[in-house]
Design a protein around this nucleic acid. Sequence first.
DNA 1: TCGTTTTCTGACCGTATGGTCAAGGTCGAG
DNA 2: CTCGACCTTGACCATACGGTCAGAAAACGA
Lengths: 217, 217
Amino acid sequence: MAAPDRLTKRNAIRRENERLILAAAEKVFAEAGFGGATMQLIADMAGLPKANLHYYFATKEELYRKVVQQIFEIWLHAAESFDKAPGPVEGIGAYIDAKMEISRRHPFGSKVWASEVMHGAPVIQDYLETTLRDWTEGRAAVIRRWIAEGKMAPVDPHHLLYMLWATTQHYADFGHQIETLNGGRPLSAQQWARAKESVKAIILKGIGATPAQADII
Amino acid sequence: MAAPDRLTKRNAIRRENERLILAAAEKVFAEAGFGGATMQLIADMAGLPKANLHYYFATKEELYRKVVQQIFEIWLHAAESFDKAPGPVEGIGAYIDAKMEISRRHPFGSKVWASEVMHGAPVIQDYLETTLRDWTEGRAAVIRRWIAEGKMAPVDPHHLLYMLWATTQHYADFGHQIETLNGGRPLSAQQWARAKESVKAIILKGIGATPAQADII
DNA sequence: TCGTTTTCTGACCGTATGGTCAAGGTCGAG
DNA sequence: CTCGACCTTGACCATACGGTCAGAAAACGA
C-alpha cells in the first residue's frame, strides 16, 4: 500500500515544512503558553501562511501534542546514562550532565513541558501515568540497589529524582530569571560548566555518593 | 485627603470582593496561563458578573499584576528566616521549610510566578532587576560569610540559591506530576514532612553544613 | 505530454474574548 | 429624608482567533 517515503522532492518539502512548523511552534508555545500562542504567530515565525499550517497539522492541539511528544522523547533518551552505570557517581553524574545539556540546548521544549504539567497535563496525562511512572519506578529501584550496596546514603529515591528534575530543568524554565540575575547576559560556556559542577557537587555529596572507593585499596 | 479606610459596610464589601476576585484569578491564571485565562471564568469562579470585575480591576493585565505582586511579597517575607540565623543549618534549613510550606499552601501563586518568568517576565521584569537582584546579592553575601567562617563548604552561592528555589518550588509547580507519580493522590502530611526532610538532608549535607559543632566541645 | 495527486493560499466564517456603557440599586453623611 | 457617591449588572461592541474551503499551482508517474 503506502509507498514508504521515497526520496522525492515532495517528501523533502514535507519534512522540511514540518520541521519548520514544529520549531516555530515550540518557541511560540514556550513563550506564550498554549492559550496565548496563536496559529498566526507560529505561521509567521515559520514563514508560511496560516492555512498551510492547518494543512500539515489539522488543529492547534495536534500541533501542540507533537511538540510535547518530541520533548518527552529527548528526555527519555537522556536517561539512558542512568542505567549502564556502576554506581551513583557515574549514573547520577551523567544524568545531571545530560539534563543540564538539554536545558541548555532545548530551553523551549523544557518550558512547554513545564507549562503542560503546571496546567494539569491535559494533553499528556496518559504519558505521566504509564511511561513516566514506569521509568520512575525503574530508576527508584536502581537507587535502592545502590543504597543497599552501600554506594550512597539512604535517601528517598523519589525525592532525589524530583530534586534532579527540578534542579536541572530550572536552568531552562527559569533561564530568564537566571539571565537577569547574571547582569542580563546569558550564561557563558564557562558559567554553564560551573553550574553543572555546582549541581553535581552538591547533590553527589548530599547523597553521600562515593567514587567507587571501597574497592580501590 | 483620602479618608483612610473606615469600617463601613462599603469598605467591607470592597475588600471582600477584591479578595474573592484575586483568589479566583490566582487559581485561573495558574491553571490556564495568562493567555488561556478568561475574565468570564474568573468572574464565574468568584461568583460575580464579569462587568463587576472590570469595576474593581480595569483590565486583565492589572488583575494579573496584582496576583503576581501578592506572591512575590509572600516569598520575600519567607526569606526573613535566612537572615537572623547563626549558620547555614538554621538559616538554609528554615528557608527550605518556609518555601516548602509556601509550595504547599500557595501552589497556584507559585505556578503563576513560574509561568510569568517562563514567558520572559513581561510584567515583573523590573522586580527581577531591582528587588530580586538585591535580595539575591544580599543572601549570596551571607553564604560567602558562612563559607569564610568555615561553616559550610565553598559552593557557588548563586547556584546554591537556584537549587533552593528550584527544589522547593518544584513541589508546587510540578505538583500534578508528583501527585500522579504518588498514585494520583496528593501528598499526605507525612509525605510532605518526608519531602521537607529529604530536601533539607541532601542539601545541607551537600554543602557540608555542620550543626554548630565546633563551639560545643 | 497528460492526467492525477499533493501542496499551497487568499478569502472567508462563526465564535469567544476583553472591554464599555448606561441605567438602576445601595449606602452613608448631614 | 435627601442627595451625592459608590456599587452592580445586562446588554452591547469591535476585534482576533481557530478553523474551512475552493481553486490555483506544483510535482509526480506513465
